[in-house]
């Protein structure tokens, strides 16, 4: 049977998605580790199915300003991948790559933005590559888009894109741990429902 809404997922299906998240974020962390020249690990990835307003609370309130890198997936799987980079993570990247730190997002220059887009893009692409390899599907990605603004508005992008199909947002993702310290950087995968059904079928867990 096909799912019509994210809240219909079974435990087995959620476990499978968590495993995907684990492999995806694990690969992303290794790539970041190489890029930043530091040890980067991941926390236990989560699969969350949230109502919109719940999702905003979960990410840390609507008005907090944050940087977001967004890539759209197409091909055999449609969806959005979003890397939400909070200030602590931004400084980690800027410090490692450009030897600078900022107090707030207003101080971010073009070089800094470019570094953040690149890091976000690498995290997202390695995640998708791992997912595509594992489930044997082909996924095309757009060039990454970048925005610095209130995170509530950034998070509503995947919601609005798939809002006609569901009242829930599903995200698969995790936080990074760098030098033993947890740094919130969320890499979120939001597929549309049809693609999610297809993915689960490919992985052999759909009923």
């Amino acid at each position: 049977m096909n799912l019509h809404s994210f809240d219909e997922l079974t435990t087995l299906e959620i476990d499978t998605l968590r495993e995907i998240g684990s492999i995806g974020t694990g690969n992303a962390a290794t790539a970041m580790s190489t890029l930043l020249g530091r040890e980067v690990r991941i926390t236990l990835p989560e699969v969350r199915i949230m109502e919109y307003n719940e999702a905003i609370d979960w990410i840390g309130g609507p008005e907090t300003v944050t940087a977001g890198v967004l890539v759209k997936m197409s091909g055999q799987m449609n969806g959005i991948m979003l890397a939400v980079q909070q200030l602590e993570f931004v400084n980690l990247v800027l410090n490692s790559m450009l030897d600078m730190t900022i107090e707030n997002y207003g101080e971010l220059n073009d070089l800094g933005k470019s570094a953040l887009v690149e890091v976000g893009n690498i995290a997202i692409s390695t995640f998708i590559n791992a997912l595509a390899g594992l489930s044997n599907i082909s996924v095309d990605l757009t060039v990454p888009a970048f925005a610095v603004d209130m995170q509530g508005a950034i998070l509503t992008v995947p919601m609005a894109e798939y809002g006609g199909m569901s009242d829930y947002l599903m995200t698969i993702g995790g936080n990074f741990v760098c030098d033993g310290k947890q740094v919130p950087c969320r890499v979120l995968l939001s597929p549309d429902i049809r693609s999610l059904n297809f993915l689960l079928k490919k992985l052999g867990v759909a009923e």
Partner: peptide
């Protein structure tokens, strides 16, 4: 009614 991300070659952002 803003457009948060400028994505090339997608319908995204017209919402």
């Amino acid at each position: 009614g803003a457009k948060m991300f400028e994505v090339n070659g997608g319908s995204l952002g017209n919402i």
